[in-house]
Amino acid sequence: MWIVLGATSALCFALKLLGHLVPERWLSNPRLQRINALIPIALLSALVVAQGLVLKTHVVIDHRAAGLAVALGLLIAKAPFPLVVAGAAITSALIYHVH
C-alpha cells in the first residue's frame, strides 16, 4: 500500500515537473499528442468495466452492474456527477441486501 502511494506520488509529480522543464518541441509530435489524448479515454473505460463487471479474473454481472446501469441512465439524462454516483451506490446496495 505504501509502495503504491509513494511511487504514484513521485511519478505523477515527476511527470508534471517534466512539462515545465522541457522545451515545447519535444512533445510536439502529432502522433504522440493524439495517442496521449486517447489514453485517458481508454484507461477510464477499462476502469469502469474492471471495477464494475470483473471479480478477480472473471467477468461477472452482479449488484454492481445494476448500479452501473443506473449511473449510465442518469448520465444520459444529464444528471450531475454526485447524483450519478449516489444513484449507482443506492441501487447496488439495495440489490446487495435483497440477495
Binding site: 473505460s45 476502469l47 469502469v48 452501473l68 443506473v70 449511473a71 451506490a89 446487495y96
Partner: peptide, 19 residues
C-alpha cells in the same frame, strides 16, 4: 463497502469522469 454500494460508486465515478 458493498453494503453501502461503494463498490458500485467507484466504477460509476469512473463513468462520470469518462462521460
Amino acid at each position: 463497502p458493498a453494503s453501502w454500494g461503494l463498490d458500485a460508486a467507484v466504477p460509476a465515478a469512473f463513468l462520470g469522469l469518462l462521460w
